[in-house]
């Protein structure tokens, strides 16, 4: 479905994406995991052909640089936060995108129904909540029922309820056979949705793995996010790894996967090293797919 060969993107002297290569089969689901600035968003934009890069990227064999609009016809894109004209009404926005995608108005109505936005057609985009905007972006992405959905941190601006709805929708899409590629900094999302994870650091893929290998613990697990002083995050990560925890620093705190009945353990480890934890967030229960560890 996606073939990426040596994708490189520079912004001035900074190499945002550096020699990234991977293949993604049709019907598979792949997560891009990494800290802020790791290159996830830039890679997604390169794959969509929205920004120019070197190397070769194709979707279903269609070169995104040479035939970008034809390649993008096979993809529904959900950005981190929907940016569309605030004055536009939801119904007219959907009609515009439906025409652009060559589908009927009925399909636009149907697509709104799929994401639970029926009856909101008269609302203006600026009046939608963050969750509704994300659902609108998902409705636009599903308009032509493309075989592939690409999402850039689709739940980062949502509350727990909104996140749950979006993740559930994506889970159904995956079960329906859609190919999913998404960037995320939430382990629970990655574990729930992805079969495969590309860990990115400084624009490079440093690991091609699975959620079960990335968070090797018995299931079910919970992911605990610890908020620390920035300066102590690296030491904290080392301390937790030394204590046998799977840890990921991702720019939004420090994520630790723990068994459900041992959520306080990482705090104890850090307390012994005199590292202060400012806040703690317990993320949703996650089920590691396809593994007994």
């Amino acid at each position: 479905m996606i073939h990426a060969a040596n994708i490189t993107k520079r912004f001035g002297r900074t190499e945002a994406v550096s020699g990234v290569s991977f293949d993604l089969e049709a019907g598979a689901s792949l997560a891009l995991w990494g800290s802020n600035g790791a290159g996830k968003t830039t890679l997604i934009r390169c794959l969509l052909g929205v920004i120019r890069s070197t190397g070769r990227a194709s979707i279903s064999g269609i070169d995104v640089r040479r035939r970008g609009r034809h390649a993008r016809a096979l993809v529904g894109y959900v950005p981190q936060e929907l940016a569309f004209h605030d004055d536009a009404r939801l119904g007219s926005a959907m009609t515009f995108f439906a025409k652009l995608r060559g589908v009927s108005r009925d399909r636009a109505t149907e697509s709104l129904g799929l994401v639970g936005l029926s009856g909101h057609e008269r609302k203006r985009v600026r009046d939608l909540s963050g969750g509704m905007k994300q659902r609108l972006a998902l409705a636009v992405a599903l308009l032509s029922d493309p075989p592939m959905i690409i999402l850039d941190e689709p739940t980062s601006n949502l509350d727990a309820a909104g996140r749950g709805e979006v993740v559930e929708t994506l889970r159904r899409l995956r079960e329906g056979g859609k190919t999913l590629l998404f960037a995320s900094h939430r382990p629970d999302e990655v574990i729930s949705l992805a079969e495969r994870v590309l860990v990115m650091e400084r624009g490079r893929i440093v690991r091609d793995t699975t959620p079960a290998e990335l968070w090797p613990t018995e299931k079910p697990v919970q992911v605990v996010r610890l908020y620390l002083e920035m300066a102590s995050e690296a030491d904290a990560a080392d301390a937790l790894r030394d204590a046998g925890h799977a840890v990921h620093l991702n720019g939004h705190g420090l994520c630790v996967a723990v068994p459900r009945d041992r959520k306080a353990e990482p705090i104890g480890v850090l307390a012994r090293r005199q590292i202060e934890v400012r806040d703690i967030e317990v993320l949703e229960d996650v089920q590691i797919p396809g593994g007994d560890r």
Binding site: A26, G27, G113, L114, V115, G116, R135, L142, D145, P147, E165, E168, T169, R172, L173, G176, G177, K178
Partner: peptide
């Protein structure tokens, strides 16, 4: 949300 019934 309604059930997603999209095809592969």
């Amino acid at each position: 949300m309604s059930a997603i019934t999209s095809s592969p």
